[in-house]
Simulated scan of single mutants.
Amino acid sequence: MLRLSRSKSGLKKPRLPDGIRIYAISDVHGCADLLQQMFAVIDRDLSTIGSKRAIHVFMGDYIDRGPDSRRTIDLLIDRGRKHESVFLKGNHESFLLDALGNSSLLQDWRQYGGLQTLSSYGLQPSLNPDSVEQAKLIEQLAVAMPEQHLRFLKALRPRFVCGDFFFVHAGVKPGISLSKQQEHDMLWIREEFLQHEKRYEKYIIHGHTPVQQPDIRSNRANIDTGAYATGNLTLLTIQGDRLLAI
């Protein structure tokens, strides 16, 4: 457990409205077992918070790379039925949806770990499928994917705002109002956002770029700890102006 604080700059700390607690998770990448472990941690915490309003915020990249994308989505759908939850879109979900409409994208999706997702739906892709196999695999995926999974993916949001916090998968483009951010930037941006040190209109909580441990800065917090490679899925809890990473 790591208790986090930002630099003592004299600036007002970002806060959530009173009575709200947020549980944020990003970049599960098919690690369903790790996600279940985090749910157990959240459930223990929920038993201690009394009448506070608890909001789960999942920040995208639920699929690819890891072993069980299908079960991960099942777990998230079930969690959303039982708890107030916000599901954001990651670049991997965006790519899957694009590939469902254009099988030629499967070759690029393969480089992002898409073959592991296909396998989780019971398909058996070769390591380097040709164009004929690519088209067949996309047809098979469209049949194998439950309708509720497709609805879940199509309903993902690009951003979520609560109090002084702005939740997004990858980040935001500096110099652009948060209300005018483009979805592509929010799903894919890296260096321009990561190197920006000035504060934004709100404090940015994001994932997308793996770090060894949660990276908390004066203007943003990155909680992608590379679960599929490290076995470490981070849970960030926010209440008031306090951030706690597990």
Rank of each mutant, 00 (worst) to 15 (best):
G19S: 13
I176K: 14
Y62C: 07
T209K: 09
R110S: 12
F87A: 01
D43R: 14
L4N: 02
L127I: 11
T237S: 15
M1D: 07
E191W: 01
D45G: 08
P158H: 01
P210E: 04
P125E: 06
R242P: 02
I25K: 10
L236M: 14
L34N: 03
M1H: 11
H56T: 12
E192N: 06
N102Y: 07
M38D: 13
G114A: 08
S103K: 01
I205T: 02
A144T: 09
Q111M: 07
V28Q: 11
A155K: 12
G66C: 10
Q239W: 12
R190V: 12
G231Y: 12
G207H: 03
G90P: 05
F152R: 08
R6P: 01
G163H: 14
S85A: 13
I73N: 13
H208W: 02
R15S: 15
E197K: 15
P67H: 09
D164Y: 11
F193E: 03
T48L: 15
Y200S: 01
T234D: 05
S177M: 09
C162E: 15
E147M: 07
K198Y: 01
S179F: 01
L76E: 13
D164R: 13
G226S: 14
D185G: 03
D164M: 05
A227S: 14
H169L: 06
P67T: 15
L100E: 05
R242Y: 08
N102G: 00
L34G: 06
R157V: 01
G207C: 08
V41D: 13
R44I: 07
G101R: 07
S104L: 02
G60C: 00
G10K: 07
H196M: 02
L105V: 00
E191A: 08
A54H: 13
F152M: 09
M186F: 00
A54D: 10
K8H: 08
K136H: 14
Y203A: 03
I246E: 03
Q124P: 01
S9T: 15
